[in-house]
């Protein structure tokens, strides 16, 4: 994929070229939104909003990392949605009765995995996700970008738009809180984690 050519064409209004970029990045963008927001519907909304906003603002992209630029837009979309939630907290009846379901991914339920192991794995996944959601927003965003998505400190600073020292501080605090939170799920954790803690 010639990304620069696609960006150039998309900047001239070629939607098909832009859609090629969307298809390339939508998995990562959606997963960032999903880990920040904590639910698939909000993550979908934030992702769609981010891709539309990015298309409209494409002429303002002046080079650099297109991935970081996209992740910054989706992160801001998540922040906006979280602020809206704070202003208008709401809970639907449907949400009260929804039981978290495992993502519909074939890889998560391979035939070689025993049901017991699959259940333990899903519970651990849920425990980690719950601990992530317990973090303050700023720390959660940094933890998702750095530890879940594997971005470097500089990339995280570029996406979040704050100084490198602030990123280091937020990441340090988030990891300390996550460690304490995860220790509460001792029986779910791998042996090495229980021994270390």
């Amino acid at each position: 994929m010639d990304q620069d050519a696609l960006i150039h064409d998309a900047q001239r209004g070629d939607v098909e070229a832009y859609n090629a970029l969307v298809l390339h990045y939508q998995n990562q963008v959606y997963n960032v939104a999903y880990r920040i927001m904590g639910d698939p519907d909000s993550a979908s909304d934030a992702t769609q909003e981010a891709f539309i906003s990015a298309y409209k603002a494409l002429n303002r992209f002046r080079g650099g990392s297109f991935k970081s630029w996209l992740l910054r837009i989706v992160t801001n979309a998540c922040y906006d949605e979280l602020r809206r939630r704070k202003r208008r907290p709401s809970s639907s009846l449907e949400a009260l009765y929804v039981v978290d379901e495992a993502p519909d991914d074939p890889s998560l339920s391979s035939s070689s995995e025993s049901p017991e192991h699959y259940t333990q794995r899903m519970e651990l996944q849920q425990a980690i996700a719950d601990c992530l959601q317990s973090l303050p927003e700023d720390q959660r965003v940094v933890a998702v970008l750095s530890d879940v998505q594997g971005l470097s400190y500089n990339e995280v600073a570029e996406v979040v738009g704050v100084a490198l020292g602030t990123i280091k501080s937020r990441l340090s605090r988030s990891r300390a809180k996550l460690r304490d939170c995860l220790q509460g799920f001792g029986e779910l954790l791998p042996a090495e984690f229980r021994q270390d803690s």
């Binding site: 993502p103 998560l108 990891r175």
Partner: peptide, 12 residues
């Protein structure tokens, strides 16, 4: 170990 656990979060 904490970072390793976070990295185990599966892609949705």
């Amino acid at each position: 170990a904490t970072v390793a656990l976070l990295q185990q979060l599966e892609t949705v």
